[in-house]
Amino acid sequence: MSIWINEETRVLIQGITGSQGTFHGTRMVEYGTDIVGGVTPGKGGQVVELPGRSVPVFDTMSEAVSSTGAQASVIYVPARFAAPAIIEAADSFHELNEGGLIVCITEGIPTLDMVKVVSHLEKRPGVRLIGPNCPGIISPGSNGGCKIGIMPGYIHAKGRIGIISKSGTLTYEAVAQTMSVGEGQTTCVGIGGDPVNGTGFIECLEAFEKDPDTQAVVMIGEIGGTAEEEAAAWSKANFSKPLVGFVAGATAPPGKRMGHAGAIISGGKGTAEEKFAAFEAAGIHIARDPSKIGEALVSALVEAGLRES
């Protein structure tokens, strides 16, 4: 089992004819993702060749969803077109399927565009947005799996750990460390590093709590905002599985944006120290050293009686 996606999930690519869309479309199909089509306005009727399949291109999401029965969409369009692309996807899924999953990889979307998107999504309760500015979501299967995003599929393996992260390559690092201690993943969700985004830590934890196959979760935050603190407080009251936490940016200076639009300590708020303290207060197993996330996971599993050593 996994959360939100599985090997059966039918996926569309918005921006499929662009270089990113085709490149990652190929990688996703190779991993086992069921890519059923794509959208590029003005290129409806074309066909895109992906490994072992030719998929149709549509002008609109509405046509694409109704013709293919897709349940999810991944967005690779440039930043200036990304917000309208998310809204189009949300409306199509809402009208035709009463819900769906949108994964937005695009980096650099204007913050106020995202404020508009998030308030629009409140009127589309069945639609979930992951991202933007994220690596996507992946659920390894027994043979391949479902990968909706840009992460290297081969570093993952099916297992019992859920991973949630604001980062891209740091998520891969966490995956590699869990693999090095012999643990695979149910689902890894990259929620992205923008200040205003879709799915947050708490929604991921809620889903992992309900997923019987997920036995422990690794949560990777970073400086900026208070999402980690809120997730910690929520987990204390509502999350029953072992939880491991790391926060990147303990050495980051205040007032400087560390690559991600949201990674900034402003007005003395959003420091790694506060977040680690909130994790500790909530009983989360913390790894202050990012090279010891795997070790922290092992001790959390051992303590919960889920592993011998």
């Binding site: 992260s165 604001k166 980062s167 891209g168 390559t169 740091l170 998520t171 690092e173 590093g193 990777i220 970073e222 400086i223 790391f246 990147a248 940016g249 303990a250 050495t251 980051a252 400087k256 560390m258 690559g259 991600h260 990674a263 790694a272 202050r288 050293d289 990012p290 090279s291």
Partner: peptide, 22 residues
């Protein structure tokens, strides 16, 4: 990657060094 870059700075500090940049 921004997250890994921050984590790399953090590791340097934890091992007793000081990062010169992100």
């Amino acid at each position: 990657g921004a997250g890994l870059a921050m984590a790399t700075m953090d590791v340097i500090k934890l091992y007793g060094g000081e990062p010169a940049n992100f």
